[in-house]
């Protein structure tokens, strides 16, 4: 099992004058699934984007550690796997072409065996050479799991992981999440009870809406 941890230290985020959350302190560590819950517009996606270093917090810090060594922001992207409805892959390439390009840009070798295994697992193997443009929304969602897991990240962040998926797709995704959680850190931001039931601990964003006086 990897020893990966994420610490949120006094995290505050404002959009203009609107407070999204404040004074958030929490620690995530590998070997478990953590949930982030809250109603629509509460800031779940904002929080996972901050954890993934896509946007900056207004105040506070997010510290990523692997084997007690801090990970620099420059290298963070290769430790994170991310799935969300607002993530888009390149429509003009096939599924496999997308995955090959992503591996090359990350500077790692494309693992054909792992790619085929995941494509099979997510029922995309027969369509791997089709352009993503022709995929249904559910197939695109499954492909995002390949994008997130192909490079064997130690932190897997899933924002609304089961959106657009049918019941078979959900089952496959839950299997993958449980498999990943055995050795890695998984964070799920969702409103779905079935998603959050997988989590050993859940943060409710609504508990972090107080401003300091």
């Amino acid at each position: 099992m990897t020893n990966y941890s994420v610490q949120l230290e006094n995290l505050v985020k404002y959009f203009g004058r609107r407070l999204v959350f404040s004074e958030m302190n929490f620690s995530f560590s590998s070997g478990g699934i953590y949930g982030i819950s809250g109603p629509n517009g509460s800031g779940k996606s904002t929080l996972v984007k901050i954890i993934s270093n896509i946007i900056s917090p207004t105040r506070g810090k997010v510290i990523h550690k692997l084997d007690d060594q801090n990970i620099t922001q420059e290298n963070l992207h290769n430790h994170i796997g991310f799935v969300s409805p607002y993530l888009f892959l390149y429509d003009e390439f096939s599924a496999e072409e997308n995955l090959v390009h992503f591996s090359n840009i990350r500077g790692i070798n494309f693992e054909k065996e792992r790619s085929d295994f995941l494509l099979n697992k997510l029922n995309l193997f027969d369509r791997k050479d089709d352009l993503v443009r022709g995929y249904s929304s559910g197939m695109k969602q499954r492909l995002k799991f390949l994008f997130a897991l192909l490079h064997r990240p130690q932190l897997v962040i899933l924002d609304e992981p089961t959106s657009n998926l049918d019941s078979d797709g959900k089952e496959k995704v839950y299997e993958l999440i449980k498999e990943e959680a055995k050795s890695n850190l998984v964070i799920i931001a969702s409103n779905e009870d079935s998603d959050l039931q997988l989590c050993k601990e859940t943060i409710n964003i609504e508990n972090y809406k107080r401003t300091k006086r």
Binding site: H77, L87, F88, L89, Y90, F102, I105
Partner: peptide, 20 residues
């Protein structure tokens, strides 16, 4: 426009993106 900016964020460092 294609919404792939975030995908780039997740696969490469800013220096790689600028150079590419």
């Amino acid at each position: 426009e294609r919404g792939t900016t975030m995908t780039l964020h997740l696969i490469a460092s800013p220096s790689t993106i600028f150079s590419g």
